[in-house]
C-alpha cells in the first residue's frame, strides 16, 4: 500500500482512537472522584480503592476468578496444543472432519448456547456446580482458541526441521520436545495468555457453570453494574485496565527487543 499522509487519514485515526479510548479514560479519571455521584467531579480521592480492597465479596470473587483462569488456561494450553498438533500433523484419521468442526465451532458459538449446553451436561451427569465446573467449561471453550493460535504457527513451521531431528535419531516424542516445542513456544505462550484473559473476562459461560457458592469477578461486577454506575466498579475497572495495559506493553516491548536482538545478530553474522 502506498503511504500518503493526508488530513483525512489523520482525522479518521484520531477520531477512531478517541472513540476507542475516551470511555476508558473517563472511567479511570472518575475512579479518583471523591463524590458518590459518578458524573460530577468533586475533587481527587482514592477512597474508592480503599473501599474496594475492604470489600470481601469482591476479593473472594477475584480469588475464584484467578484460580479458575490459571487452572483452565493451563489445561486448555495442553489440550489446545495437542489438538493443534493433531490438526496440522496427524494426517488422516477417522472422524477428522468432526474433530476440526469441534475445534472451530466454539469460536463462533454464542456464549449463551455454550453455557446452556455445559450446564445441562453437568446436571445430567449429576455434577455439583462450583469452581471445578467453571474450570471444565472454560477449558473447553478456550482450548479451541489456543489450538487456532498454535496451529497457525505450526502451519508455517518448516516440517523438515522435525524430519531432520528424526533423521538424527530422535524418537517422535523427542523431536517434538526438543525441536518443535521450543520453536512454537511463543505461540503456545500467547495461546495461554489468550485463554487466561478469556477466562478472566467470561461472564456468560461462568454464570451457567457456576454454582451458588462460587461467584466469579465478572459475575459480581455484572450484578452490581445492573444497578448502575458505581465508583467502586470504576476503581476496580481502573485496576484491571492498568494491569492489562502494563502486561500488553511489557509483552510487546519484550518481543520487540528479541526481534531487534535477532536482527542485530543476523547483521553481525552477515558482516562476519
Amino acid at each position: 500500500m502506498n503511504r500518503r499522509f493526508s488530513w483525512f487519514n489523520a482525522t479518521s485515526l484520531t477520531l477512531g482512537f478517541v472513540f476507542l479510548y475516551l470511555p476508558m479514560i473517563i472511567l479511570i479519571i472518575f475512579s479518583f472522584n471523591s463524590s458518590k455521584l459518578v458524573t460530577v467531579w468533586a475533587g481527587f480521592s482514592t477512597k474508592w480503592y480503599g473501599e474496594l480492597l475492604g470489600n470481601k465479596a469482591f476479593l473472594d470473587a477475584a480469588w475464584v476468578t484467578l484460580k479458575v483462569a490459571v487452572l483452565s488456561s493451563t489445561l486448555a494450553t495442553v489440550l489446545g496444543t495437542m489438538a493443534a498438533y493433531v490438526l496440522v500433523r496427524a494426517g488422516r484419521f477417522a472422524g477428522r472432519t468432526l474433530f476440526s468442526g469441534m475445534i472451530y465451532a466454539p469460536l463462533v458459538m454464542p456464549e449463551v448456547i455454550t453455557g446452556l449446553a455445559m450446564l445441562l451436561l453437568f446436571i445430567s451427569i449429576g455434577m455439583d456446580r462450583g469452581v471445578s465446573t467453571i474450570v471444565l467449561a472454560h477449558t473447553t471453550f478456550t482450548m479451541c482458541y489456543v489450538s487456532v493460535v498454535v496451529s497457525s504457527r505450526l502451519v508455517t513451521f518448516d516440517k523438515s526441521l522435525e524430519e531432520a531431528a528424526l533423521d538424527l535419531g530422535c524418537t517422535p516424542f523427542d523431536a517434538f520436545r526438543s525441536v518443535t516445542l521450543p520453536i512454537i513456544a511463543p505461540a503456545v505462550i500467547s495461546g495461554w495468555l489468550l485463554a487466561f484473559t478469556l477466562s478472566l473476562d467470561d461472564l456468560v459461560i461462568a454464570s451457567f457453570a457456576a454454582g451458588p457458592s462460587s461467584t466469579t469477578l465478572p459475575m459480581k461486577i455484572f450484578s452490581s453494574v445492573r444497578l448502575g454506575v458505581s465508583p467502586e466498579i470504576n476503581a476496580l475497572s481502573t485496576l484491571m485496565i492498568g494491569i492489562v495495559t502494563v502486561g500488553v506493553i511489557t509483552a510487546s516491548l519484550v518481543s520487540k527487543r528479541s526481534i531487534a536482538r535477532q536482527r542485530a545478530e543476523e547483521q553481525a553474522a552477515a558482516r562476519a
Binding site: 476507542l20 473517563i26 472511567l27 478472566l200 465478572p218 500488553v248
Partner: peptide
C-alpha cells in the same frame, strides 16, 4: 496495531460498562 488490539485484552464487561456514565 497495538492501540487497536489493546482494548481487546481489557475486560469486555468493563468496556460495555464504561458507556453507562457517558
Amino acid at each position: 496495531m497495538m492501540l487497536v488490539i489493546l482494548p481487546f485484552w481489557t475486560s469486555f464487561l468493563i468496556r460495555v460498562y464504561s458507556w453507562i456514565g457517558i
